[in-house]
Design a protein around this nucleic acid. Structure first.
Lengths: 223, 223
DNA sequence: AAGCGTCTCCCCCGTGCGGGGGAGATCCGC
DNA sequence: GCGGATCTCCCCCGCACGGGGGAGACGCTT
């Protein structure tokens, strides 16, 4: 496989530990044909970032606070059209995670213990459309889940609607549904609809997680 | 504390995962007064390296294949004269590890999840002869929430207790009361008590407002 | 005209959340 | 010894929240 003359492969790093992100960045950016275009600390922050940065590859941690890598993988593939390739990164050779990751639609599976050369190789491989499955025995499973990706494509073109974003901003200021309703001069049932939509799109379980995602993704900023 | 005009602090990295070493190196070498002088992949390799490189600080992983960080710490302190300061680096806030590490003679204790600034700070601190015992995140919260927040409805004026701060941190990661209870190995009723105390002291109406306060005050930070 | 997406509002329903009490155990300082 | 603080757990209770449905009105593109 030859990489000369290619456009650089763009990568988004998703891991809750800054240290791991720094490590991946150091390893990947040492390659002239690979470019890290962004980082996220949680799966919940991934979708808007993918939409904005349109990376070729997402390196996704499994264990993360709000939304784990499996969930985030599902969310990205479900809500983003022309989605990036996704490499799920984990610490242990957990077969369950491999299986789950494949079911979720991941293209690659990588251990954190891997040597830099393997990591670089994995990124290049999935960027080229190949799938990379660590244990050979699991490779067979890939075939069974190979047809996804066409079906799920895009409910709406964009993430949050303007109204939903407005509601999320008010949620992130601590307002209750009733207060948001009063502020926006609509019924509380309407607000509930918007809140539900926000929770669904962000993969949040409740308004608290949604607000956390808003902070973590930079949608709102402290200060 | 002023670092200008100092000799650079030399650091030896000991971790079995190249990724983590690369991350630490990237984070530390970004500082002009810190220099990474060597790396080791296992505790067993540390002693000769320490003898040869004479680093000021050793950043030591706990979990390693041949000799773990606790053992390696003991070995270094026992066999090397004028030994370096040792920061034990681990993944989880495992009290047992903290205790063991301190018993072994470690000068500092650091979580891999820490933000770069905290890691850098820890290295400088132990290099200066200070000891850095409990996770910086915990320490920070106590200090931060100790005296502020005097105004408002809160009548106690005493700030958050350690336990309450711990609960708030978990709230700020999106955990429900039941999940926090499971994490802290206590009953949900206990968690409810702590949550209520946190809400009262922060002047928050619900957990969402408490989490917002946590972000806005710097108690937790995005990224 | 048809279709889609958005915004609006409505129903039912379960439950997690938070308030308001109380109480025992431990530790620490006076 | 005694009081205070902290951590733990328990009761009852109201309600906001969130999930599951559905539906009408508007504006847009096709």
């Amino acid at each position: 496989m030859i990489y000369a003359g290619r456009m650089p492969v763009t990568v988004l790093l998703v891991d809750d530990e800054p240290l791991v992100r720094a490590g991946l960045r150091a390893v990947l950016e040492a390659q002239p044909d690979i470019q890290v275009v962004g980082e996220a600390a949680d799966g919940a922050a991934v979708i808007p970032l993918v939409r904005r940065l349109r990376p070729d590859v997402v390196a996704m941690d499994v264990r993360m606070p709000l939304m784990d890598g499996i969930e985030a993988t599902r969310a990205v593939l479900r809500t983003v059209d022309a989605p990036p390739k996704i490499i799920v990164v984990t610490t242990f050779e957990d077969d369950e995670f491999v299986y789950e990751a494949l079911r979720a639609g991941a293209d690659g599976f990588l251990l954190k213990r891997s040597r830099p050369a393997e990591i670089v190789h994995a990124v290049r491989l999935v960027a080229d459309g190949e799938s990379l499955l660590f244990p050979a025995s699991v490779r067979r499973l890939a075939a069974r889940f190979g047809e996804r990706r066409t079906a799920g494509a895009a409910l709406t073109g964009a993430g949050l609607t303007e109204r939903e974003a407005e509601v999320l901003r008010l949620m992130a200021r601590g307002l209750s549904n009733a207060e948001i309703a009063a502020r926006l001069v609509v019924g509380t049932e309407t607000v509930k609809s918007h809140v539900s939509a926000v929770l669904a799109k962000l993969g949040a379980r409740d308004r608290t997680q949604a607000v956390i995602a808003a902070y973590e993704s930079g949608f709102v900023a402290p200060g």
